[in-house]
């Protein structure tokens, strides 16, 4: 799916930009247009803007990734100490009743459980600096038990969906912006946000579980079709 979306985002962007440039160039009468020497085509055309935006974005991508290294190192270091001490194990045990339903294939004392729970907790508190490194730590642990490297496992997708629909108890950024724009009641969005995010989580997890259910059923059907003929048992 991502392959298609990525392809169409780029193709459509370029076609729409080119189309709007052609429209503007032909629609504006020659004399109304600035002379070519005065024009900065890079800023004046959609195609120029798209190119600049792409160049700016790839630079920003590297900056974001490099900027992550410091907090990543901090949290991976702390998690390593906690793992050695058996702390992550203890956390995983406490939340076992919930996690064994969400992630049935992960052993209940696996280190990924501890990291996932800490990531979700950090998200809830709006601690985004801690949440991302902990989430990536969880991904690393999940990848260790991933049967097909380079391909997302069911557990990884379940975790990702819980993460992207993350319930935040205090949506701090939204509240801060509301306050700065002079809202009479900036916190008014807290309860609606929690309800909307819960709904997102429920729908997301349900979608994931339904897809996993049908995929398992399909692979089981094809397996019994292959072997069923030999021993006659279905």
């Amino acid at each position: 799916m991502l392959n298609h979306i990525w392809l169409w985002m780029i193709i459509l962007s370029l076609l729409i930009a080119a189309g709007s440039d052609i429209y503007h160039e032909t629609a504006t009468p020659e004399k109304e247009r600035q002379t070519e020497t005065q024009r900065n085509l890079n800023e004046d055309t959609k195609l120029g803007q798209v190119t600049s935006a792409a160049i700016e974005a790839v630079g920003r991508a590297v900056k974001i990734a490099i900027g992550l290294i410091g907090v990543m190192a901090l949290w991976l270091g702390i998690m390593k100490v906690a793992e050695e001490a058996g702390m992550i194990h203890i956390i995983a045990k406490i939340v076992r009743p919930i996690t064994k339903r969400l992630f049935p294939s992960i052993p209940s004392d696996h280190p990924s459980i501890g990291a996932m729970i800490m990531n979700i907790a950090a998200n809830m508190l709006g601690l985004s600096n801690a949440a991302t490194p902990l989430g990536l730590k969880a991904m690393e642990e999940l990848d260790k038990i991933n049967p097909k490297k380079g391909q997302a496992s069911d557990d990884m997708i379940t975790f990702l969906v819980i993460n992207t629909s993350a319930i935040t108890i205090v949506p701090a950024t939204a509240i801060a912006i509301r306050a700065s724009l002079g809202s009479g009641n900036p916190q008014m969005i807290v309860i609606p946000s929690i309800i909307a995010a819960s709904m997102a989580t429920i729908v997301g997890v349900t979608t994931v579980k339904l897809i996993q259910y049908f995929q398992k059923k399909n692979s089981k059907n094809s397996a019994t079709a292959e072997h069923g003929g030999q021993n006659g048992i279905h």
Binding site: S13, I16, A54, E56
Partner: peptide, 13 residues
Amino acid sequence: MLMAIAMFRASGA
């Protein structure tokens, strides 16, 4: 990812 998103936004798509 960021490149595709930036292009999508800047183009008016």
